[in-house]
Design a binder for these strands. Structure first.
Lengths: 106, 106
DNA sequence: TAATTACGCAACCTTACGGTTGCAAATATA
DNA sequence: TATATTTGCAACCGTAAGGTTGCGTAATTA
């Protein structure tokens, strides 16, 4: 089945994994130690993240270090762009209201 | 059950709904016309979006206009912030490579 | 008032998700 | 070579997700 970035980040464990390896590449075992679940459960999450290319494997002997793929994370940012204008407009309107209040105060 | 913004935007139909009402507030019926599914199915998605406050209802007689809540959308942006530094760093490194290549060309 | 329209709620069904356990393959170590 | 370690894959299970249909309720209209 085809994986989706948005579906990938829907799970809190997977978001935690992304936050972890954003700091430092980790092996599945190292990740599993951080969570209260089996290594296999964590490996399943890794598989999902890898399928949609949010993380990249780096083989080193029998260990595999997983790295974050920032380019893919940026796709979420790109999607958000269409809404960003809207909340920026709202903030500008808030600024107007605040400056109007200031003027009235004077 | 407690709803989550990230789980809410995991579904492509719900992302489409958000994109639609970002332009203009719509009623459930108006939204349902845009999708190839029943009105009730769309209403279920609306319920999910409303539970996590991504959209807000505005009652007008027997019609309900749903508006986007940009503040809540911004929470996704806030989460992305921790990764944004990383891809910006990568771009800076790309800039360095490019400027080095330019110098060598000269 | 009667009929229509817009909407939400509940029951139901199929499929996907997130977890488990067990096992096989590849690498490192004794 | 025999053993331990690291990982992935497959089977299984309970629950939640996403769709359907049917019905009840409130507001509009004939």
């Amino acid at each position: 089945m085809k994986r989706d970035i948005f579906q990938a980040i829907a799970d809190p464990t997977r978001r935690a994994i992304l936050a972890l390896i954003a700091i430092q590449a980790l092996t599945p075992n190292a990740m599993a130690e951080k969570f209260d679940m089996s290594r296999q459960a964590v490996s399943k999450h890794i598989k999902v993240l890898q399928e949609c290319e949010l993380i990249k494997p780096e083989h080193s002997g029998r260990e595999i270090y997983y790295h974050l793929n920032p380019q893919k994370m940026q796709e979420i940012d790109n999607w958000l762009a269409q809404f960003r204008k809207i909340w920026e407009t709202q903030f500008n309107q808030l600024d107007k209201v605040l400056s109007t209040m200031k003027k009235q105060k004077k």
